[in-house]
């Protein structure tokens, strides 16, 4: 039925490519855009184009940025001796949101997964080792995800970095704050018990 309105069908098809958006939602969004004034549509189209034009990866930490090096890499108030490794830019943003870390970052842009053809060469590993050989870093905080792949990546990193005499730490995992023990899933409780510490 959309075939008779090709421009509408085209927009629906493009919107339906978004993660988590099916054809139904895409149609609703398309109708919403149709009702919007032209200026709104232009603002949206402009924002999307600007994103593609202005944003690139920082050549030092590989976070997304508009300026290279990125503001985090050039911020003089951060501790050069502390480097946090994450898988993706969104992980970095999550840690920044918590305001708990005042060092610098390195975004690997993925995790090791031989099944997907991802080895160290497909990630930003050699760039990381170069940075570490610069000598300023005392501690490497590994904040890869708590998946099988994230853990293996952390172990691989530790193996490569320890010979450099740099302390390697891993983000702690366990029960989320503010949650009742009884509602936490078994696997999380399991890991929290295994990772228990002295009081």
């Amino acid at each position: 039925m959309l075939d008779s309105i090709p421009s509408f069908a085209r927009l629906v098809a493009e919107l339906a490519k978004f993660p988590g958006i099916g054809k139904k939602t895409a149609t609703r969004l398309a109708f919403f855009l149709l009702r919007q004034p032209r200026a709104e549509a232009e603002a949206l189209a402009g924002a999307i184009l600007e994103l593609k034009e202005k944003i690139g990866f920082c050549s030092r930490c590989f976070h997304i940025t508009e300026s290279d090096p990125c503001p985090i890499c050039t911020d003089p108030g951060r501790d050069e001796g502390l480097l946090c490794v994450v898988e993706q830019p969104q992980d970095l943003i999550a840690i920044e949101r918590s305001r708990s870390f005042r060092g610098r970052y390195h975004v690997l842009q993925g995790a090791l997964s031989p099944l997907d053809g991802i080895g160290p060469d497909q990630l930003r590993f050699s760039e990381l080792l170069q940075r570490l050989k610069g000598g300023a870093v005392r501690e490497l905080l590994v904040a890869t995800n708590f998946t099988v792949e994230g853990d293996a990546t952390a172990l691989y990193l530790a193996g490569q970095v320890r010979p450099l005499g740099i302390r390697v730490t891993r983000l702690a995992h366990g029960i989320p704050t503010g949650s009742d023990l009884e509602f936490v899933d078994d696997a999380t409780v399991n890991r929290a018990v295994e990772g228990r510490r002295d009081l």
């Binding site: 031989p114 792949e149 293996a152 172990l155 691989y156 193996g159 490569q160």
Partner: peptide, 26 residues
């Protein structure tokens, strides 16, 4: 099962020990 599949893939690729080690540990 996930670790096993990942590790078997590396063995198929005859990957070097340094790459195999973290998967052996996991």
């Amino acid at each position: 099962q996930r670790c096993l599949k990942q590790r078997n893939r590396l063995l198929k690729l005859a990957a070097e020990d340094a790459q195999l080690r973290p998967w052996s540990q996991k």
